[in-house]
């Protein structure tokens, strides 16, 4: 038990520290790397909570794809982050005030936290004991049956995202040399190769 507690405090403190560094680091590439560190430690927190599937997904999707994408964006966009951050101190009082108000509200709301007794039954009924079913199986069981509709809807949303990005960015540029395999294959030897008789000593 004490080891689990120690591990929790380790992961939690590293997560918070890394998250602070994400917004404080001068170099944007370092920010992204700190973000990766924060993701890894959050994954550790998930494992401690028994949500091993979420932990692995967090690493595969967020570290493997999202953070790397951020890295690409940061490297490709030539943005002067130092200049962007110049007004930081100027906005700090207002931003800090809003943050404090939000924090106070959150504390007030979370302070009243209780799962209503009535609803505890329907909410927890379909979930079997963790020993019977790993949470990967449990997620898969509801994702493709009870929530199949939402799964399909998410698919359509991703399709729209793809269509949208193509519509807004794809341009047909004239004069681009493109490989047309059908034309390559249908070419005959006669139209592709020309034999020239070259007499010795005269050149082509």
């Amino acid at each position: 038990m004490i080891i689990a507690n120690l591990a929790f405090y380790l992961f939690a403190s590293v997560t918070v520290a890394a998250a602070v560094m994400v917004i404080c680091a001068r170099n944007p590439v370092h920010s992204v790397l700190f973000l990766v560190l924060a993701f890894f430690n959050s994954a550790g927190l998930f494992v401690l909570m028994g949500a091993e599937f979420l932990a692995m997904i967090l690493i595969v999707v967020y570290v493997g794809a999202v953070a790397v994408l951020f890295l690409f964006v940061v490297m490709m966009l030539d943005i002067n982050f130092v200049a962007l951050r110049e007004g930081f101190l100027q906005y700090l009082p207002t931003g800090g005030l809003i943050g404090l108000i939000l924090l106070a509200e959150l504390v007030l709301v979370i302070g009243g936290w209780s799962i209503e007794a009535e609803i505890a039954v329907p909410a927890s009924a379909p979930i079997p004991a963790p020993a019977e079913l790993s949470n990967t199986e449990a997620l898969g069981g509801v994702l493709y049956t009870r929530y199949a509709y939402l799964f399909q809807a998410a698919g359509v949303i991703l399709l729209i995202a793809m269509v949208g990005s193509i519509v807004l960015t794809h341009r047909v540029r004239p004069g681009v040399r493109k490989q047309r395999i059908s034309r390559q294959i249908s070419r005959t030897r006669e139209e592709a190769v020309e034999l020239k008789k070259v007499s010795p000593g005269e050149g082509a």
Binding site: W113, S114, I115, E116, I119, A120, P122
Partner: peptide, 14 residues
């Protein structure tokens, strides 16, 4: 978080 359900009719009952 406060009710444990996302279903409209269960929320209405609650």
């Amino acid at each position: 978080g406060f009710t444990g359900t996302t279903r409209f009719e269960v929320l209405a009952d609650l």
